[in-house]
Nucleic acid binder design. Structure first.
Lengths: 220, 220
DNA sequence: CAAAAAAGTTTGACTACTCAAACTTTAATG
DNA sequence: CATTAAAGTTTGAGTAGTCAAACTTTTTTG
């Protein structure tokens, strides 16, 4: 079994590879993400490479192998099932569960994971709308687009909030936004890089393009 | 915060001090309990001593300090709340939860612990009848005596099973014995070091004195 | 394209934990 | 009570993970 540290590296690598156009991660970003020095990240990459969890040549990009990918999906599954449990059953604050799940995800046995998943009714997404991979590692991402790409007068439904930052989640939740909430885009102003949206029974809220890019919606 | 390893040493020391008449633990038993060598245990004791979690002189007994005791009770609280959750909510097998809780207990934040405890209705004992310390570290042990000390024809109620060994718990559960179950002691034979007991609607079961010593009961 | 910045690597050292094996002290027993 | 067994300690070494700092390679940019 991968250690807790290894799982965290793999998870971070998965996310970095996703968001990079080349599909490869770099040591600098990885180190930053995990709050370690570049040297530490380099030596860990060497170990992961030796364990065939990543493919990496010196001074070039890092990619997960199939084996590494499997681990990443498994950790994500555990993480998201726990988040769902914390919000739905233990009523923890939506914005806080990420860091809590971060510690618990490494201690969950397959047996408990399955029981928990079953208890929750095999949820397909976590409270932020992130898809939960199934036990075999299949992820079904709902079709969606960033709120930032919407036009004025569009009516949309929030599908997912793509950021785990507590402050951001707190702001989003305080604005009454979470997956399942319907929005109307009232106006879009490219010059100020912002847009104004309104939830069903709520005040209009101004969002920067950056914030709106992290809110995924589907048109209704 | 104490590391996972430190928490495990402290927990084992707590148990050993309890069961020793002198109230002090020894390195050999400690090492055995944690599946490490005596040398490893000695060096850890030195570190715990430096951190003021235990009081220990070379070649003499080990005792927990107040600070160490606090940690032990805290770990036990987490462990037992988790066990209760696993059995009551996730329907895990009574005999299996100990090792599962063993891993989870180190990953539970105070916040989650409290929510879980609240969700379960602030239970006072875990599924084996072991008392759950409250958040302040107070333990209320129910008055009880070992089944092994009972006389023939006594009617008793099982209060607690004092052993976490899976095989033993499985045997006990298969015999229909768990906390809350009423028993009648049918006969006691000192020469064969065993006794025969019967649950309300069950077959008579023969228990060795050793097994019966681990089953705590109260007279009804 | 040369200089500077950024990214990546290496080295030496440190903490936490572990073992094997030699050793010392204490306890048990013929 | 002398010997042996058990308990406890020390030493030397190894793995996992980390940092600081010097260094090399690649990328960016004036």
């Amino acid at each position: 079994m991968a250690t807790e540290t290894v799982e965290n590296y793999i998870k971070a690598l998965y996310a970095l590879c996703r968001e990079s156009p080349s599909g490869e991660a770099g040591v600098a970003r990885l180190a930053q993400e995990l709050s370690v020095t570049k040297g530490t990240a380099t030596s860990m990459i060497k170990r992961l490479s030796l364990a065939r969890l990543v493919k990496a040549e010196p001074y070039s990009g890092i990619a997960l192998t199939a084996k590494g990918n499997k681990i990443a999906l498994d950790v994500m599954r555990r993480h998201r099932v726990i988040e769902t449990f914390l919000v739905r059953i233990l009523k923890l604050d939506w914005a806080d569960v990420h860091e809590e799940a971060e510690r618990l995800e490494h201690a969950l046995s397959p047996r408990i994971l399955d029981r928990l998943d079953h208890f929750l009714g095999r949820p397909s997404t976590d409270p932020h709308g992130d898809p939960i991979p199934d036990a075999a590692g299949n992820v079904s991402e709902a079709r969606s687009k960033p709120l930032a790409k919407c036009r004025a007068r569009e009516r949309v439904c929030i599908v997912r909030i793509k950021d785990q930052n507590r402050a951001f989640l707190k702001f989003v939740a305080d604005s009454g936004f979470m997956p399942g909430v319907n929005l109307v885009v009232q106006s879009v102003s490219p010059q100020s890089a912002s847009l104004v949206v309104r939830a069903a029974r709520g005040e209009p809220v101004t969002l920067s393009q950056i914030a709106a890019a992290k809110i995924l919606v589907k048109v209704i």
